[in-house]
Amino acid sequence: MIFSIAIALLLASVAIGFVALPLVRREEISGENSLAAINPALEELLFDREVTYAAIKDLEFDHTMGKLSQEDYQRLDHQYRARAVNILKELEEVEHVPTDEELDQWIEEAVRMVESGHTAAQGSGRGGGKSARQATPPSKKRITSSAQCPECGRPYGAGDRFCSACGGTLLPLCSACGGTSEHNARYCTQCGTELTIA
């Protein structure tokens, strides 16, 4: 009897101790342990993006397997890519919250561009990668162009050489007419404007 009471007490105290530990210690709860920090909309979008990418891949697979006619493939592929673009746009909106330093940096950049005679729009989204994208304030108007990354379908602006989403190599985009030219072209093959190289 005493033996079983002892066992019971021992088991109970070990269990309770283990359970109470996080409550007592109250260690730095931030980052990975926080419950409120992560944006659910972002996660949804990220999953949606993966699903869309998978669908595009599957479509291509069906096409190579001869299950889809050429025109069906192109039309469907286009639709999925458009959907992917939409998701990426939304992702950018959700993800982007500029910090003070970023805002300062952007203002400096804008001032410098005005001083050197360029319009602010030309500098949009310069270079590839995340840091450059974060330098873009949410309110800034992007050039609306039909040019999309050949790898992932994300639209890009004049002066971009690499895709900000997937890092793919982009065809140079003319800031004047919005047309694309060959790689390494120095002048737009459609209107002759000098291409900005960022």
Binding site: A15, F18, P22, R26, I29, L35, A36
Partner: peptide, 19 residues
């Protein structure tokens, strides 16, 4: 939104396995 409670609950789940 109490992460320490979530962590404690997690510990309890593992303790259930032990028991």
């Amino acid at each position: 939104k109490l992460p320490e409670l979530w962590k404690s609950g997690r510990h309890a789940s593992w303790a259930v396995l032990a028991m």
